[in-house]
Simulated scan of single mutants.
Amino acid sequence: MKLLTLCLCILLVSCTSEPLNVRYYLLHTPQNTVDIKSDIAKPIVVVQSLKIADYLRQSNLVMQLGEYELHYSRQDVWAEELESSFYNALLQDLNSYGKRNYVVSSSPDATGATTIINIKLEHFHATDASTVVSSGHYWLSVDDIKVGKNKGLTTSSHSFYLESELKQDGYSHAVEKLRMLVENLANKIEKDISALPNN
């Protein structure tokens, strides 16, 4: 009986699966630049907090399978909340253009803002068609100087759908391409702000 119990224990131990090898990904990484004081001559733009779809509010990376199914990776996860990581990456990319000072709403410079951006991220994931996609909406609210500061806000609505082809397998490459989609969004926002009156 003891021998049978020992054999069963050995069998159970050998059947246990290997520990899950979890990989963590960052969307926003520090750049090798010195943070200098903002140029007060540049227009100030406030980037409001990002709103993201509920299905993106978890740490697992997502892949869309077919038209309606989503797969959440158990071993490929975001190192920090996607909401804050995406926001910080976008803010960094917007400021890289050097035409405006893009700031967070809690910044002391926010009171002098001429433009406010609100963003809703609806999709941000890889697909089984070897692509990554990002889509959503953003709204630009601009002070109407003729009416007076903070009295006349003109708001324009913009939707975006960005896609990039994957050349390699794996989530690491997908994250690299997703990061490029954030840069593309920053470029689109910058162009739309430049086209607004008084900008």
Rank of each mutant, 00 (worst) to 15 (best):
I117N: 00
P108L: 03
I119E: 03
H125F: 08
R100D: 04
N118G: 12
H125G: 00
T114R: 15
A113F: 06
A113G: 06
D128W: 07
A113E: 01
H123L: 09
T115P: 02
S105D: 11
S105E: 14
E122T: 13
T111M: 14
G112T: 08
P108R: 05
R100M: 08
P108I: 03
A110D: 05
F124I: 01
E122N: 14
H123K: 15
A126H: 03
I117T: 01
G112D: 11
I119S: 04
H123P: 06
Y102V: 06
S106P: 08
N118C: 09
I117C: 01
T114C: 11
A113T: 01
Y102N: 05
T114P: 09
G112Y: 11
I117Q: 00
I119P: 03
P108N: 04
L121P: 00
K120R: 14
N101M: 04
G112S: 12
T111S: 14
H125A: 05
S107G: 07
A126V: 01
P108E: 01
E122K: 15
N118M: 09
Y102M: 01
S105F: 10
V103T: 06
F124R: 00
P108Y: 06
T111D: 11
T111Q: 14
A113M: 04
D109S: 15
R100H: 09
A110T: 08
S106K: 13
H123E: 12
K99W: 09
A113L: 02
S105A: 14
A126T: 02
V104E: 14
V103D: 00
L121S: 01
V103K: 04
K99R: 15
S106E: 13
R100V: 06
T115S: 13
A126E: 05
I116H: 11
H123R: 15
L121D: 00
A110F: 06
N101G: 00
T127G: 04
V103W: 03
A113C: 04
S107Q: 07
T127Y: 02
N118T: 13
A126F: 05
N118Y: 10
S105W: 10
G112K: 14
I116E: 10
I119K: 00
T127Q: 03
R100C: 05
E122I: 10
P108K: 07
N118H: 12
H125D: 01
L121M: 01
T127D: 03
N101C: 04
P108D: 05
K99D: 11
K120D: 10
T127N: 03
T111I: 15
K120T: 13
E122M: 13
T114Y: 11
D109I: 13
V103Q: 02
I117R: 01
S107E: 06
T115N: 12
S107W: 04
